[in-house]
């Protein structure tokens, strides 16, 4: 039950992009096509799950016992950066096909604030290990959902005749606002 609430909350109610404003850069940058946004979503899900696992273990096995919780930011970002590097190297060796699909997105993820954000949030929310992993995967699914939906909208927007000043990012932002409004309908669900 608890897990179910976490999943619904992370995907719909507190959607990381549309309600929490994390990961906006890839949201605006990589959402031109549905196929690329699916790839980005998959890569983020993969890294986010690993990163939260690593962040959780580090927080409660290293930082808290040593009493250096204030080193959190610096430790987490280093872990995420090295994790992304590692995933890239391993993926290249083990599964060239998957690397082909996700490879281009991986370097972008280091500076994706959603990944660091989730790591910090799961500590703030005092989740246990299971909840942390569920939370991070659900968040990533929410991210992918927002990205794919938005890409679908943008694919159509491209064909519209718009005033010059509105083309590109401005109209994208306004559509994102309307999408966020739709997601607000989920609030109060849990």
């Amino acid at each position: 039950m608890e897990y179910f609430v976490i999943i619904i909350a992370a995907i719909f109610v507190n959607n990381i992009v549309l309600a929490q404003f994390l990961g906006i850069c890839p949201f605006l940058g990589v959402s031109n096509k549905v196929s690329t946004s699916l790839g980005m979503g998959a890569a983020v899900t993969f890294v986010m799950a690993l990163a939260s696992l690593a962040a959780y273990l580090l927080q409660y096995n290293v930082l808290v016992p040593l009493g250096i919780e204030y080193m959190q930011t610096i430790v987490f970002i280093l872990v995420i950066a090295s994790l992304v590097q590692m995933v890239e190297i391993i993926l290249k060796k083990v599964s060239p096909a998957l690397y082909q699909a996700l490879g281009v997105f991986l370097p972008l993820i280091t500076t994706n604030c959603a990944v660091l954000g989730v790591a910090i949030l799961l500590v703030q929310k005092e989740f246990n290990l299971g909840e942390s992993v569920v939370f991070s995967v659900a968040t990533a699914i929410g991210f992918t959902l927002a990205l794919v939906l938005f890409a679908g909208i943008r694919e159509r927007l491209d064909m519209e005749d718009l005033p010059k000043a509105m083309k590109g990012v401005p109209i994208a932002l306004i559509s994102a606002g309307i999408l966020a409004m739709a997601f607000m309908g989920f609030s109060g669900l849990v």
């Binding site: 549309l18 309600a19 404003f21 005033p163 010059k164 000043a165 509105m166 990012v169 401005p170 109209i171 994208a172 932002l173 306004i174 994102a176 606002g177 309307i178 966020a180 409004m181 997601f183 607000m184």
Partner: peptide, 25 residues
């Protein structure tokens, strides 16, 4: 109220960008 909530952030920034683009052009 909408403008304090999440959707308002996107919409306000979107329109500010439109105005900014118009002025700079």
């Amino acid at each position: 109220l909408l403008f304090v909530l999440a959707p308002g952030a996107f919409i306000a920034l979107g329109y500010l960008l439109v105005i900014f683009n118009k002025l700079t052009s």
